[in-house]
Computed example of a mutant assay.
Amino acid sequence: MKKILITGANGQLGSEIRVLSPLFPDFDFVFADRSEFSLESESETLSFLEETKADYLVNCAAYTAVDKAETEIELADLVNHKAVAILAKWSFENNCKFLHISTDYVFDGTSEIPLKENDRTNPQNEYGRTKLLGEIACQENNPDSIIIRTAWVYSEFGANFVKTMLRLMNERESISVVNDQIGSPTYAKDLAEAIFKIIETEGWYPGIYNFSNEGKISWFEFALAIKEISGSNCDVKGIPSEAYPTPAKRPAYSLLDKTKIKEVYKIKISDYKSSLEKCLNNLSKNI
C-alpha cells in the first residue's frame, strides 16, 4: 500500500484532501499539521520524514499571512522557501513523489492575458517572493517534482474570502470590495480532486502547472456571486484597490491559464460559480 504524507493537514487544502481520502482506500494517508510537523526545524523535519517514509509527499503547508509576511520575513522564508528545499531534497533522495503547492503571487499582476506556467515571474510582496524561492528550491533539489500554482483559495474550512463575506453580509447593511483585481477563485475541494487525479494517473509528469476554477472575475464580482447564491440583502459596492490599502501589494491581474494541466492530466475544471454553489451549500448544512 502506497503511503501519502500531507503537510499542512489542517489548512483549507489539507482539510479537503482529508475529507476525500476515504474514497481512496488503496492509499495509506498520514496527515501532519503544524503541531506535528512545523517545518521550522530542519532536524525535526528530517526525522519526521525518515519515520514516515512516504511514497508521495503533498506539501500543502505554507506561510500564507500575506500582509504579516511583510514584517515576518524570516518566518515566511523559512516555511515557504527553506523548508521546501528540505522536503524536495529528501523526496528526491528517497524515491518519493513530491507535489508542492504555490501561488499566483509569483507574478507581478501586469499581464492582460491569462498567465502561463512559463511566463516571467516578478513577485511584488514578501509572500510571493518567498513562494517563488520555494519553487526554485523545489526544482533545484528535485527535478522530478510537480508544482501547482493556484489562486484565491476558499473552502468550508479555515479563514477565507467566502466565509468572511458571508459574515460581513450578515453583520452589515453594506460592504465595499475591490473591483480592479482580476482572477478566478479556487475551491479547495476541486484542487484536492485534481491532486488525486495526478497521483492516480500512471504517468508522473514533472513541472509547473496552473489550477483555479474557470471564469474571469474581480473580487467585487466574486462577492456579488456570494450575495446572490446566499440570498443576502447586503449592499455590495465596488471600490478601487487604492481605497483599501494593505501592507502587501496584491497583483491586479492573476488569471491563470489552465491549458497544461487539462491537457497533460485530462483534468476537467469546474466553473467558479458552480463550485461556489457547492461550497455554500455545504456551509449552510453545517450552520
Score class of each variant (00 low, 15 high):
residue 1 M to G: 13
residue 4 I to Q: 09
residue 6 I to F: 14
residue 7 T to G: 10
residue 9 A to R: 10
residue 12 Q to G: 10
residue 18 R to A: 15
residue 20 L to S: 08
residue 20 L to Q: 11
residue 24 F to Y: 11
residue 26 D to E: 15
residue 27 F to H: 15
residue 32 A to M: 06
residue 33 D to V: 05
residue 33 D to K: 12
residue 33 D to M: 08
residue 34 R to T: 06
residue 36 E to C: 04
residue 37 F to H: 07
residue 39 L to Y: 00
residue 41 S to E: 13
residue 42 E to H: 01
residue 42 E to D: 09
residue 43 S to G: 01
residue 45 T to A: 05
residue 47 S to H: 05
residue 47 S to W: 03
residue 49 L to S: 07
residue 51 E to P: 04
residue 51 E to Q: 14
residue 54 A to R: 09
residue 54 A to P: 15
residue 56 Y to H: 14
residue 56 Y to F: 15
residue 59 N to V: 02
residue 62 A to G: 09
residue 66 V to K: 02
residue 67 D to A: 05
residue 70 E to Q: 13
residue 72 E to L: 13
residue 72 E to R: 06
residue 73 I to W: 05
residue 73 I to G: 06
residue 81 H to G: 12
residue 83 A to T: 07
residue 87 L to K: 10
residue 88 A to D: 01
residue 88 A to N: 00
residue 88 A to P: 05
residue 90 W to D: 08
residue 92 F to K: 15
residue 100 H to M: 12
residue 100 H to T: 12
residue 100 H to F: 15
residue 100 H to L: 11
residue 102 S to Q: 05
residue 106 V to C: 05
residue 107 F to T: 06
residue 110 T to D: 00
residue 111 S to A: 07
residue 115 L to K: 12
residue 117 E to K: 01
residue 123 P to S: 01
residue 124 Q to G: 09
residue 125 N to K: 05
residue 127 Y to W: 04
residue 127 Y to I: 10
residue 128 G to T: 02
residue 130 T to N: 08
residue 132 L to G: 06
residue 132 L to P: 10
residue 134 G to W: 08
residue 140 E to V: 02
residue 140 E to S: 07
residue 141 N to C: 10
residue 141 N to T: 03
residue 142 N to E: 08
residue 151 A to P: 02
residue 157 F to W: 11
residue 158 G to Q: 11
residue 161 F to L: 10
residue 161 F to K: 00
residue 164 T to L: 13
residue 166 L to T: 04
residue 167 R to A: 09
residue 170 N to S: 14
residue 172 R to I: 09
residue 177 V to L: 03
residue 177 V to T: 03
residue 178 V to C: 09
residue 178 V to E: 01
residue 182 I to N: 06
residue 186 T to W: 00
residue 192 A to L: 00
residue 195 I to D: 04
residue 195 I to N: 02
residue 198 I to C: 03
residue 200 E to M: 10
residue 201 T to A: 14
residue 204 W to T: 01
residue 205 Y to A: 11
residue 209 Y to C: 04
residue 210 N to P: 04
residue 210 N to L: 03
residue 214 E to Q: 12
residue 216 K to T: 14
residue 219 W to P: 13
residue 221 E to Q: 15
residue 222 F to G: 06
residue 223 A to G: 03
residue 223 A to D: 13
residue 228 E to R: 13
residue 229 I to C: 01
residue 230 S to N: 11
residue 231 G to F: 02
residue 239 I to K: 09
residue 240 P to I: 15
residue 242 E to G: 09
residue 242 E to L: 01
residue 242 E to T: 15
residue 243 A to S: 13
residue 244 Y to C: 12
residue 244 Y to Q: 10
residue 247 P to M: 08
residue 248 A to E: 02
residue 249 K to R: 15
residue 250 R to Q: 08
residue 250 R to L: 15
residue 251 P to M: 06
residue 252 A to R: 15
residue 254 S to M: 10
residue 256 L to M: 04
residue 260 K to Q: 08
residue 261 I to Y: 04
residue 262 K to F: 00
residue 266 K to A: 07
residue 269 I to P: 01
residue 270 S to Q: 03
residue 275 S to C: 04
residue 276 L to K: 03
residue 282 N to V: 01
residue 283 L to G: 00
residue 284 S to E: 13
residue 286 N to W: 12
